[in-house]
Design a protein around this nucleic acid. Structure first.
Length: 894
DNA sequence: TGAATCACG
DNA sequence: ACGTACGTGATTCAA
């Protein structure tokens, strides 16, 4: 086999890597404050290349210093002049880039007064003479002058991973028949703007190619220049002769630089994984660490002695009917994990399970029947603390088997969410890596979603025992951190009990009247096809009304309607735009109607009928308890938190949500203005507190304050509307522009309104200022229940990112505290329903409201009980107000 | 897979 | 001077 050499232009690649991930600059900072964007991109690319080529020899060449100190700088003092200085965020990464290369067993090399190109050229020549095959990786096309049968030059196109492979043939194809040697003369004629040296005046790529094709080389051109017929070009060639030859020298890569390392010493050394792991840990390279760990586990690379010493032999036993007794040896705590075949645990199958602990070991099986044994049932219901990952999922799965589990004390999913919501993908492998515990990812074991495959049981069981062991070992360090953050109450008193409440709400589900919904769907279908016909007729052609692109083409190109707003990709056809056009172009109103019914039909009629449980005719949503950045819940499969309510047509969907027992009622209860009450509480503003204390309509009260109206004046609709927009703006992190936009007023007017607001509610401004200052200082903000949100971008130099972080710094304590409050209310509500032996069931939570189903005789009980529980969930500096309604279905509950 | 749109608080 | 209000999920189209 011919030996191979890999040569990499380090500087060029580092720049590419840096700018390829420039948008991530402020997010990718290690715990030491080092930017890591270029390091990550470089490292991934580097791994990929080395992995693919498996070179025998390799070298990464770096530029020694500034242009002036190289021999090219001596020839032309302005060489590389006018270049932007390297951003400090990249400079600081260079020493680490070199270390990274070094730890990969590959030489880094630089030579005073020479550039990386020259080092590469020199070694490429040496390798060619020695009969090696060389691959050069660079972002600089100059290096294509080195291309030959034995030297391949790969030039990055976009970013770092997309490469053009230059062979002599490819070069000729790319540049109209040019040869590698002619690349230099091209540069001589055209100059190089990025290196800041000129060629011949007015000669660009096209002219240069033509000249070279005719005369072969720069020398050839000048040999024949006298016989050319008189032209501006000839004049320029003659005048710029010296410049051209100087450019030729500058463009020529030195192939005889005095390099000191012998070719054979560039041999690639084996990677020292111990050191590489330490390096990655220093840089917080979670993904790379996980990769190394999984390679070690699968035996692809040697296992590391010093890391994870205790758990190298992650043993497990297959649980059978014969060895069930072994389970009685489990003391202290019990880790439980169920592996399903899909995300939606309401309909998933259990593939296998694992139970055990670090002392007694782990027992794994795919025989689900074993769970029904008295040994297991006893263990699950015993008072032994249980450690799990996703208590809610486990509770639902067990419920399907008719089983229960008691005393879940540790849910690592919940704990990691409380510790840090950012970059939480809800996966055990990633969350564990934050604590330097590395296990294989589900994607690695089962394949990604579309290609889900169950591995052989040995592999599956081993994976499960790894997961269980990780959960056990995560208990101490993660709870330690919870305590340091003063988040124990948030965990033990709110999130953990809530997960059980949510599990039972999901299991109970809400009944869907499928016939009612189908009938509504038929009605919508007719409206849609009618509108469709009328739209085609008016448009004079058929087109896909659902395609914003085709619609924009029709409206703004064919019909020549002046566009109002742009999107990234073209003209916007959003409802706000169409509404503005509808008066002048009645046809546009048809499109708005079409959109409305199409949305209702696809998302709410078809969508809901698709996911209804055919066995009990119920909708079992899943609440995601560990997803939002603020502490709210979210709801999926289906989303029960965005069922239409604002327009009459959409609202009718709610008629299909009915009680699950005949004669029962749907009962709903919602907080009134909870976020503004939280605002009054956290700011302690007297004016705001007074308005709530006196039970005023808060938007009207705000209108009085900001428009200077005395208490006897009647507030107009418009005044109240504006005040309402201001109140929303305050909660969201207001800007004069944003307010002006929304109210259709000038920016100046917007600004004045905001200033008046802050004069009237001075402590609101004080609080906003102080919470932003606090966020800058500590890097996170908190809710009343000590829920945290980290805001790394608050330190960004990018105005947009920083401003966004500042707005979230004000919004999150408000939205998040409101979420805390309703969560507490839900736990209390659940408890009191049980204590009073009521049949009523809590079904849904929609951020500030709770929906129940109840027998008629409990209506009056709920009417006093639910508002009482909700408004007493926490004690704020203002009262909480709750309103309650009931009806035969969710539509009539209002 | 991302963008656009629109449903909710 | 910067761009321009917070938090979500589902569907559809078009690469």
């Amino acid at each position: 086999m011919t030996k191979t050499l890999l040569l990499i232009d380090g500087n060029s690649l580092a720049f590419r890597a840096f700018y390829a991930m420039h948008n991530q600059l402020d997010r990718m900072i290690s715990h030491n404050g080092l930017h890591t964007n270029a390091l990550v991109a470089f490292n991934n690319f580097f791994d990929k290349i080395v992995d693919k080529l498996q070179p025998d020899y390799a070298l990464v060449a770096w530029d020694a210093g500034k242009g002036i100190s190289t021999f090219r700088g001596k020839i032309f003092s302005d060489y590389k002049g006018g270049r932007q200085t390297t951003p400090p965020e990249l400079s600081e990464q260079f020493p680490y880039l070199r270390k990274m290369v070094d730890l990969h067993g590959i030489h880094s090399y630089e030579l005073p007064s020479f550039e990386a190109d020259d080092i590469i050229g020199t070694y490429a020549k040496k390798a060619e003479q020695a009969g090696l095959l060389t691959t050069i990786i660079t972002g600089d096309r100059d290096l294509t002058q080195l291309v030959s049968d034995r030297v391949l030059v790969q030039v990055t196109k976009k970013g770092v991973t997309d490469l053009d492979a230059y062979t002599p043939d490819f070069l000729a194809k790319k540049w109209a028949g040019i040869s590698p040697a002619q690349v230099i003369d091209m540069k001589a004629l055209t100059g190089d703007s990025s290196d800041n040296y000129p060629g011949v005046t007015k000669v660009g790529e096209k002219t240069a190619l033509r000249l070279l094709n005719k005369y072969g080389s720069l020398d050839g051109i000048y040999k024949n220049v006298d016989s050319m017929k008189a032209s501006k070009l000839k004049e320029n060639l003659v005048n710029d002769r010296d410049t051209a030859y100087r450019a030729q020298t500058l463009a020529t890569i030195k192939c005889d630089a005095p390099v000191e390392i012998a070719l054979e010493d560039l041999v690639v050394k084996p990677i020292d994984f111990q050191k590489l792991i330490e390096f990655y840990e220093e840089l917080d390279f979670k993904v790379q660490l996980a990769k190394i760990h999984s390679m070690q586990k699968s035996g692809m690379i040697p296992e590391n002695d010093e890391v994870d010493n205790d758990h190298k032999t992650n043993y497990f036993t297959e649980l059978t009917a014969a060895n069930l007794d072994h389970l009685t040896e489990i003391k202290d705590y019990l880790t439980v994990y169920f592996q399903t075949d899909s995300e939606n645990y309401h309909q998933a199958s259990i593939l296998a399970f694992v139970i055990g602990n670090e002392q007694a070991g782990y027992f794994v099986s795919d025989d689900i029947q074993l769970l029904n044994s008295s040994v297991v049932r006893k263990l699950f219901t015993s008072s032994i603390p249980k450690y799990v990952f996703n208590a809610k999922e486990l509770t639902v799965l067990l419920d399907h088997l008719g089983l229960k589990i008691n005393n879940i004390q540790f849910d690592f999913l919940l704990v990691s969410y409380l510790l840090n919501t950012t970059d939480n993908d809800n996966k055990l492998s990633t969350l564990a890596s934050r604590f330097k515990i590395y296990i294989e990812s589900d994607d690695d074991v089962f394949g990604s979603k579309s290609k889900f495959k169950i591995p052989e049981s040995e592999v599956l069981f081993k994976h499960l025992s790894q997961k269980a062991s990780a959960i056990s070992r995560l208990y101490a360090p993660s709870l330690r951190e919870l305590k340091d953050n003063e988040q124990e109450d948030l965990y033990y008193k709110i999130e953990l009990p809530l997960s059980d409440v949510l599990a039972r709400m999901e299991i109970n589900g809400i009944k869907l009247d499928q016939a009612e919904l189908s009938d509504l769907g038929k009605e919508f279908d007719e409206k849609i096809s009618d509108l469709e016909q009328r739209i085609y007729k008016e448009a004079g052609e058929k087109f896909n009304i659902n395609s914003p692109k085709q619609l924009a083409e029709l409206l703004f190109v064919k019909m020549q309607i002046p566009p109002i707003k742009r999107t990234k990709t073209g003209f916007s056809t959003a409802a706000s735009v169409l509404e503005e056009l509808a008066d002048k172009y009645p046809f546009v109103a048809l499109i708005l109607q079409y959109r409305q019914f199409a949305k209702l039909n696809s998302t709410y009629v078809k969508g809901l009928l698709d996911v209804v449980d055919k066995n009990d005719s119920k909708i079992h949503t899943r609440y995601l308890q560990t997803l939002t950045q603020t502490g709210r819940l979210s709801s999926v499969d289906p989303n029960m938190q965005n069922i239409p309510d604002r327009d009459e047509e959409g609202k009718r969907i709610r008629k299909a949500f009915v009680p699950s027992h005949p004669g029962w009622q749907i009962f709903g209860s919602d907080y009134s203005q909870i976020e503004l009450r939280v605002l009054a509480h956290v700011t302690d503003d007297d004016n705001l507190k007074k308005a709530f204390a006196e039970g005023e309509d808060i938007h009207a009260a705000t209108a009085r304050s900001i428009f200077g109206l005395d208490p006897s004046t009647k507030i107009t609709f418009e005044q109240r509307r504006r005040a309402k927009a201001v109140n929303f703006g305050i909660v969201y992190g207001i800007s004069d522009f944003g307010l002006a936009q929304r109210l259709g007023i000038s920016r100046q007017e917007g600004k004045e309104i905001i200033e008046t607001y802050f004069r009237e509610f001075p402590k609101v401004r004080d609080w906003i200022d102080s919470i932003i200052a606090l966020a800058h200082k500590q890097g996170f903000v908190e809710t009343i229940a000590h829920r945290r949100r980290y805001l790394p971008e608050i330190h960004s130099k990018n105005f947009n990112l920083r401003s966004f972080a500042e707005r979230t710094a004000t919004n999150t304590p408000i939205q998040g505290s409101a979420a805390d409050i309703i969560k507490i209310a839900m736990i209390n509500m659940d408890k009191v329903l049980a204590e009073k032996n009521l049949k009523s069931k809590m079904l849904l939570q929609v951020h500030d409201e709770l929906i129940f189903e109840c027998p008629p005789e409990e209506i009056s009980i709920l009417e006093s009980l639910v508002p009482k529980i909700m408004d007493s969930a926490v004690k704020l500096r203002v009262p909480l107000k709750v309103e309650a309604h009931h009806g035969d279905n969710w539509y009539d509950e209002k």
